[in-house]
Structure formats: structure tokens, C-alpha cells
Computed example of a mutant assay.
Amino acid sequence: MKNRIFLHGLNLVLCGLAIAAFAACGDDGNEGSGGAGGGTASGATTGTGDATSASSGTTDPTTTTSSTSASTTSATTGTGGGPQSLEMIDDMEDNDNAINAAGGRVGYWYTFNDETEGATQQPPPDPEGTGETPFTMTELAPARGQSTYAARSWGSGFTTWGAGFGFDLNSPEGAKAAYDASAYTGITLWAKGTTSATVMISDPGTDPEGGVCTDECDKWQKSLALTEEWQQFTIPFADLKQGGWGTPAGTTAIDASKLYSIQFQVGTDPEFDVYIDDLAFYN
């Protein structure tokens, strides 16, 4: 800091001399005005770096493949900035099925689908929770910058509403409980895929644990316009909407102080292959 003040002062002195000699001079008053800039609420940034950029998306895990009430964000390329503060939920680099055990979070990745006869999904679901087929991360080849693993699910043949994967935020000993994420603005993640996907987040009004819905829990959602190139998506909680097909939550916005799960769902495309990486809360 002392060096910075000295250099700034020296610059002003030189400017004064230059004014005397040339009657014109600029100063170094551009601090903070250049660079990548701040994150925006919508749009997707393509690239291979780690989580630092912006975008949005929509769709729900128990709805049909295309929820018309959920908005889809088209991807845009660029080098814009993103969230200034991240709380990593899972960067996948430990190559296990658990999210980062930090900030009071305890959760494990799993898959789910509509059980269409003859359809396939990898990793396979474990509805009984036996642990015999735990979710496994996929090694990236080539790596995405410093990232070498990602959460991935792929398959084909689902015809009712599709398939998905995700995790609960607070499920010690298998008992799902709410997690307080009210200190954050939303979530950010990197993703790619052969089809669009929907990020879905549940709260008391959209999860069976909350007592408002049972089998028609219409989670808060945002559709992600995925491509086969990595993109970063930044999704404010304020942008999440219900799909409009199930039980109304009774509120107009998600209750970020009581979140239960984060999931990613694809619809009834003949085939799907979706990657998620560096998933974090952001401010």
C-alpha cells in the first residue's frame, strides 16, 4: 500500500512536469474500471477456466422435458466477469460422491429417472440407498483448466418426464433437513451437454419435507441452454420460478433460508449426456 501511494504521488508529480512542458497529461485514475467486470444476472460464458463468469437457465426434475412456463437463457460467448465471492459446494476434485463437508452441508450425489422400461441411465439410481452403486465422478479428458473431474450423467430412452441427478444439502445419517443459504445471492456452475437441462432447487413449499407438496412438488427452476462447449451459468435465487405444473409453493419466491436439494434434470430427448462442475453459492 505504501508503495502504491508513493507511485501514485510520483505520477502526479510527473503529470505536473508534463503539464508545464506539454500542457496536457493524464493520471492513473482508472483503477477498478477495466478488467473482466462484474457478473450479470443472465447470459452464459463459454471457456475452460474455473468458476468466475456469468449466466442463467431453467426446468424442473419432476416435470415434463419442456416446461413452457420456465424461461430458457441462450448462451453468449465472451470474457465477462462473474461472482466476486464463492462458497464452493463441490468442485468434484476429490472424486467421491459427497459434496464438500463445509458450512454445515452434508450431502451425496445421486441419480433419478421416470423408470421408463428399457431406458438406461449412468450412473444408475440407488433408490433404496444401499450404497452398492454410489455416484461416481467422471475424469475430464482434456481437463477444463485446473479441473480434472466433473459430475456427469448420461443415458437414453426416457419417455415420461426424463432423468436427472443432484444432491441434498443437509442430509446427515440419511435424514433430509433444511440448509440456510440466505447469506448468498444464488448459485454458479460450469456445465456442458448434448441437450438442455434444468437446475431445480427445493424449499419448504416445493419439497415433501416441507409439508406443502407430496407427489407434485414443482421445484424452483431455471433452464440451462447447454452446448458441447463448457459454459458458466450464474443463477440468482430471484430468477428461479416454479414450472407451473404442480402444487403451488404458496410464495412468489424461493425461501433461501431453508433449501433442501439442488438437482439437474433433462427431458425426454432420445439421448442425453450432461456434465456439471465447480458448483458454488455466490455473492
Rank of each mutant, 00 (worst) to 15 (best):
G211P: 08
D28H: 02
W245C: 00
G80Q: 15
M200Y: 11
S66F: 01
D114A: 11
G243E: 07
D273L: 03
C213Y: 00
D126Q: 04
N97L: 15
L279W: 14
T58F: 01
D27S: 05
L86D: 15
G211A: 11
T130F: 09
D168V: 08
G166C: 15
Q146K: 10
A44M: 06
S42Y: 02
S156C: 12
A197F: 00
C213E: 00
F264H: 11
T194M: 05
F233N: 03
T198M: 10
T46N: 11
F281G: 13
A41G: 01
V212R: 01
T136Q: 12
Y260M: 09
G9C: 10
Y184S: 11
F167T: 12
P208G: 03
E93Q: 15
I235E: 08
A98N: 15
Q263V: 13
D180K: 00
T234G: 04
A54L: 08
S261D: 12
D273K: 02
A150F: 05
G246D: 01
T63W: 06
L240P: 07
G162P: 12
T133K: 13
S71I: 04
F237R: 03
L226D: 00
T227H: 01
F167M: 14
E228H: 04
T46W: 03
S69H: 07
N113R: 06
R152D: 03
G129Q: 14
N283I: 01
T79P: 05
Y275P: 01
T252V: 04
P134T: 06
L226Q: 00
D207L: 02
Q221R: 13
A238G: 09
R152V: 02
S42H: 02
F22E: 06
T76F: 12
S223P: 01
A163R: 10
W245V: 10
A98I: 15
T59A: 13
A102G: 05
P204Y: 03
Q146N: 13
T64D: 05
G26F: 01
T138Y: 11
T64F: 00
G246W: 00
F165L: 08
S147C: 04
A51N: 09
G155D: 02
G43D: 00
T185D: 14
A20E: 15
T120K: 08
G82F: 13
G164H: 13
P61D: 09
T214K: 06
T58E: 03
I187P: 09
L7I: 10
P123Q: 14
F167Q: 04
K219N: 06
M1I: 05
A280T: 12
E173K: 10
G246C: 00
D90K: 08
W220R: 04
T64K: 05
D27A: 02
S69T: 14
V199P: 04
K192R: 15
S202N: 10
D277H: 05
A197E: 09
P270C: 03
D27Q: 03
Q242M: 01
S71N: 13
G267D: 07
G145E: 07
D91N: 15
N95G: 03
A151W: 08
I276G: 07
T58P: 00
